[in-house]
Amino acid sequence: MNYLEHTGKYFMMLGRVFKKPQRTKVFYEAFLKEIEDLGLKSLGIIMFISFFIGGVIALQTALNLENPFIPKSLIGFAAKRSIILEFAPTFCSIILAGKVGSYITSSIGTMRVTEQIDALEVMGINALNHLVLPKVLATVFFYPFLISLGMFLGILGGWVSGVLSGLFSGADYIEGIQTDFDPFLLSYAIIKTLVFAFIIATVPSYHGYFVKGGSIAVGRASTQAVVWTTILIVIANYFLTQMLLT
């Protein structure tokens, strides 16, 4: 199957996903469950990675600024911009693409190969709407919070690393964070996160829903889903950056 055919099939799938849920109460329960599965269960990894990567960004910046005429506050400034603009929305989304993407593909793919999706359709349930819409809304709703937390912990990690290593003072770092703060940077990061969240929910769902075969096919689909989700995040990141910042 060529890329054009996959793209068409993906958009046709979206057409079936975005329908009014057949039973609001069931949809609401599924939505809350997806918030837990796709959002809350990713809190730990995002917190852990953000804190340490934030620390590394601050340390690397400090180690590369040897000129005594460059103020130390620039370390906080550079760390803040790197974390808010790229690390939190893009890097964290790529991590989530691996963790959540493979989970979505394997869970929907297993439902496909074990005829659970057929069972839904025989009952008269729009399986795509029932399975995918709660995932899309849960990621789009929750990931901005998750990424915001990643930003905060990344910046905090930078401060801790400076204080512990003695490469820069906490006061210099905080001064750098407060310097020339542009609130649009946050909007930019949130807009990117919303787009990435949509990709993370829909692309793996597509790979899982249309899987054919058995457990090996599900495993292969999970790998493909992670690869394609990552590729699409990187491409979307490029275009969003160009559209929003230039």
Binding site: R23, T110, M111, E115, Q116, M123, G124
Partner: peptide, 27 residues
Amino acid sequence: IGMVFQGSALFDSQTVEENVMFPLKMF
């Protein structure tokens, strides 16, 4: 229509009660 699939096709994440109650909740 009621359908019994070859592999049962029960929803893995739901209990027996939730599986059987599912069509009632939906319709």
